[in-house]
Nucleic acid binder design. Structure first.
Length: 578
RNA sequence: GCCAGCGUAGCUCAGCGGCAGAGCAAUUCUUUCGUAAAGAAUAGGCCGUCGGUUCAAAUCCGACCGCUGGCUCCA
């Protein structure tokens, strides 16, 4: 791939520039990534302001028409070379290449005479081939050597690189568009949620408008579940430590649990998950095969003590509202139940024009200690999920090591209007929790069989899903979801009375009257910026004829219409969605 | 948690050792308006918090709190 050569070559040029500007720099790795490249350095102290300097140096190096040349060196020679230059990371890499004997060779790539790097190759022939108008250093960040937090933190410089200037501009434009749609910004502008320093980081507070949207989303999920025999249950937000010791969460996530010690010294945990509570509801009595499946759903908050550095807007929070459901069934019912959930997921996401891709999240067979239970259970569960995906004839990517600690998952990835992918819904098949909690039912033969448990979240977390929706729609929610659907805008306050009478007639919708003392133009501008789906402009003409002038969001003036007709059309438009 | 950057009015930001500033928003008054910003006046500040340097700190230094972008983590 030509573009990969370009990006990789730029990484080397970046390293060469850093070597010149920071003689003490130690070099990590410099791979190609989506849209560009990065290179990791130690002993490089810099900030965003220093980037033009480095960029300039890169241009000056690249314009010297330096050839990229790969040679094979004996590992011992390369080791000696990097030892002399005090490059511990390169030495570690050579060691890790697993040289079998002394004759083993490693690749060394030179950029003219300015830089020599351990590298497998894949460059353009000469720096003169590099499109100097199509690259840009993007940002500086910290990154652990080899991605391990026990290792030293290096300075990572990210760069963007494309084959042409046009592609770079296009990408920069997309980034700009994404910034405009940033849910943190729109959330404040549209007054959907807020944070308080007194409440704490990662704990979003939802305003009246934001709460309307949350409730509508949750109602939608529930309307789909109810059709399939789900029952709502309600649970407390804390439980004794022992519940999580039994479930295995205590061992696995001890550090991320919010804990409470009562005045009598008992230890409680703020729930980080709902399954153990749902399990206790299921376990209140003995079940027969005739009673199964039992399907319990709760939309409820869970709390996880995420590290502060991981928190971000609504995407990653400490108080998470899950639309969580658990199905308790016999082995023979799992397939049907999973297909039902899958159908709900398809219906739900198509309502938002979000297309879904499937990820099969399986265990990493190399790390059995990370998972509960025995191999046979895991093999069974993974086989069932793969069989269903095959029957549905849906392509999927297999993600080894992405399973939950209690079972494999079908994870659904949504692609938004900017082409970005987000993990959303999840279906998890779990044979391990039922075992740990000893969940059984009486089968047709009168014996006891093990319960199979399915964890299902349609939105996943409402906070996160809302952030995706805000960015997907750039804040312009579809009519059924808009917290304010209609604004009635009197031309002047002489018509406030007429506006009031209209509002009363439209009270099945979410309507507001803009009767403050402002010019019409100002109020329309406000309405457009608040992304209100319909503005009804009313003045003398409208009052005399009993009509409204309809202005549709983004479309401008649609002309006059009888109120009844408008009302009917809006009702129809809402109906289309649900 | 780690690395880097940033915290000044409700919002967006200027000021960067010597009296705390602008636009928008808010309030009051004027205006009564026909499809994306009417005009005037008023009010609004522990310059994130605590400590240090200095005759003097929003400004320089340190710690903490918070935010942003990465890294690590993510049931």
């Amino acid at each position: 791939m030509e573009i990969e050569y370009i990006r990789h070559s730029f990484a080397h040029v970046l390293a060469a520039a850093v070597k010149k500007l920071f003689p003490k720099a130690q070099f990590g790795i410099g791979p190609v990534i989506e849209n560009g490249f990065y290179y990791d350095f130690k002993n490089v102290k810099m900030a965003d302001q220093d980037m033009p300097k480095i960029e300039q140096e890169m241009r000056s190096i690249a314009s010297q028409n330096l050839a990229f040349k790969k040679e094979l060196w004996p590992a011992s020679k390369a080791t000696a070379h990097f030892k002399k230059l005090k490059q511990p990371f390169k030495l570690e890499l050579i060691k890790e290449l697993g040289m079998k004997d002394k004759k083993s060779k490693v690749g060394m790539v030179s950029t003219g005479d300015v830089f020599l790097d351990l590298c497998r190759g894949g460059h353009v022939k000469n720096t003169k081939e590099l499109p100097l108008d199509a690259f840009k250093l993007a940002k500086v960040a910290g990154a652990y050597w080899r991605g391990d937090e026990k290792n030293p933190m290096l300075t990572r410089i990210y760069g963007l690189a494309f084959a042409t200037r046009k592609e770079l501009d296009q990408h920069l434009h997309t980034l700009q568009e994404a910034e405009k749609r940033d849910h943190k910004k729109l959330g404040a502008e549209l007054d959907l949620f807020t944070f308080s320093e007194l409440v704490g980081p990662g704990l979003p507070l939802f305003t009246p408008k934001g709460t309307i949207v949350r409730d509508l989303l949750d109602d939608f999920v529930w309307s789909l579940r109810r059709k399939h025999g789900y029952q709502r249950v309600d649970i407390p937000h804390i439980a004794k430590k022992e519940l999580y010791e039994t479930s295995g969460h205590w061992d696995k996530f001890k550090n991320e649990l919010f804990r409470i010690t009562t005045r009598e010294g008992h230890e409680f945990v703020v729930k980080p998950m709902n399954c153990p509570h749902h399990i206790q509801i299921f376990n209140r009595r003995k079940w027969s095969f005739r009673d199964l499946p039992q399907r319990y759903a709760s939309t409820t908050k869970i709390y996880r003590d995420e590290q502060t550095g991981e928190l971000s807007g609504l995407t990653r929070v400490r108080s998470i509202t899950q639309d969580d459901a658990h199905v308790f069934c016999g082995m023979g019912q799992t397939e049907r139940e999973i297909k039902i959930i899958w159908e709900i997921i398809d219906t739900f996401y198509s309502a938002f024009n979000l297309s879904l891709k499937l990820r099969m999240s399986l265990r990493d067979p190399k790390k059995p200690k990370q998972y509960l239970g025995d191999k046979k259970n895991w093999d069974d569960a993974e086989t069932i999920l793969m069989k269903i995906a095959k029957e549905k004839n849906v392509a999927y990517v297999e993600a080894r090591g992405e399973a939950a600690f209690y079972g494999p998952k079908l994870d659904f990835m949504a692609t938004d209007s900017l082409g970005r992918q987000w993990q959303v819904a999840t279906i998890q098949l779990d044979l391990n929790m039922p075992k740990r909690f000893n969940l059984t039912f009486t089968n047709e033969q009168g014996g006891q069989s093990q319960i199979f448990m399915i964890h299902a979240a349609i939105m996943g977390a409402i906070e996160r899903f809302l952030s995706i929706l805000i960015e997907h729609y750039a804040g312009a929610f579809p009519l059924w979801l808009a917290p304010e659907q209609i604004w009635i805008v009197p031309v002047s306050d002489k018509w406030n009375g007429y506006a009031k009478s209209l509002a009363a007639k439209l009270n099945r919708f979410r309507v507001n009257i803009q009767d403050e003392n402002e010019t019409l133009g100002k109020k329309i501008r406000e309405g457009e910026m608040q992304k209100i789906p319909y503005l009804l402009i009313v003045g003398e003409k409208e009052q005399q004829t009993g009509t409204v002038s309809v202005r549709k969001r983004g479309k401008g003036n649609m002309g006059q219409m009888r109120l009844e007709e408008f009302s009917r059309k809006v009702a129809e438009e809402i109906q289309k969605y649900l």
